[in-house]
């Protein structure tokens, strides 16, 4: 799964760069508009090391932000799973808040918290939190009658068993959503860095943009793509392992 993610990204990136080069050749554009392969390679040789460290810096913030948002999403999702007034209120609030563009709130966050680590973390967490929350709410609020009926009828149902049943029955969906939210967390962190931070790959992209250096931006995109592919691949592999382990250990106990 990990290698499939990487080579799929390489294909997409290769097609993208190929199209750019086709436009460059077709329209006889200079390296200033679209850099040629020698310039891309030359620039990559100069900036790749620094950009790789920047991407890891960004990824570390994204992982932390994603972890916080996963925790919060499950916390609120479990609280809001009930069809009670409070549960309904939490769901409606989550749906409404999701509609706010986090990017528009970002400048306020930077003014309040400065342009350091906390702002990047908060924006990363906010951007991936709401889609996660909606999925978790959807999973947790949907009963699994075939299984839950037995525990309800025998009076053995408790909240953590209910959560466990619903999570297990939707493990593939949750794994996919968590892996997908990695992209959102990464994108959120990059956006935060681009707007106002003083570190990370988003910050480096902004400087490259100031200097009209598309070759550097292409290098940064490659680094981001590779790293996020590896991270997502690892998350998916982890999800599969958890599913296999949890299934073998708990399915018998549940049923």
């Amino acid at each position: 799964m990990l290698f499939r993610r990487i080579y799929q990204f390489m294909i997409v990136y290769g097609v993208f760069v190929g199209l750019l080069l086709a436009v460059k050749t077709g329209l006889s554009l200079s390296d200033y508009v679209i850099p040629g392969i020698p310039l891309i390679l030359d620039t990559a040789g100069q900036v790749a090391g620094g950009f790789f460290r920047d991407v890891l810096d960004t990824l570390s913030v994204a992982i932390l932000g994603q972890g916080i948002s996963i925790f919060l999403a499950f916390f609120v999702g479990i609280l809001g799973r009930r069809s009670s007034w409070a549960g309904s209120m939490i769901r409606v609030t989550a749906y409404n808040i999701q509609a706010y563009p986090i990017v528009a709130l970002a400048p306020i966050i930077f003014i309040l918290l400065g342009d350091g680590f906390l702002s990047r973390l908060l924006i990363a967490a906010m951007i991936c939190y709401f889609p996660l929350l909606l999925s978790v709410l959807g999973v947790m609020a949907a009963p699994v009658p075939d299984i839950e009926h037995f525990y309800l009828a025998t009076g053995r149902m408790c909240w953590h068993l209910e959560v466990k049943i619903r999570a297990f029955e939707n493990l593939s969906k949750l794994t996919t959503v968590i892996a997908g939210s990695a992209t959102l967390a990464m994108a959120g962190t990059i956006v935060a860095e681009f707007i106002a931070a003083n570190a990370g790959i988003g910050y480096s992209i902004r400087i490259a943009l100031y200097q009209s250096d598309l070759a550097a931006i292409l290098t940064a995109l490659f680094m981001i793509g590779i790293v996020i592919s590896v991270y997502q691949g690892l998350l998916e592999s982890l999800g599969e392992a958890v599913k296999a382990k949890w299934g073998s250990e708990n399915k018998g106990a549940l049923l």
């Binding site: 554009l29 200079s30 390296d31 200033y32 009209s212």
Partner: peptide, 26 residues
């Protein structure tokens, strides 16, 4: 870039933009 792509015929650019563009063959 817009001059080269044909979107603009005239433009305003800073000196560093002009110099960077010349280095890259614009």
């Amino acid at each position: 870039k817009e001059l080269e792509l044909g979107y603009a015929h005239f433009g305003v650019a800073s000196a560093d933009q002009v110099i960077r563009a010349l280095e890259k063959g614009a």
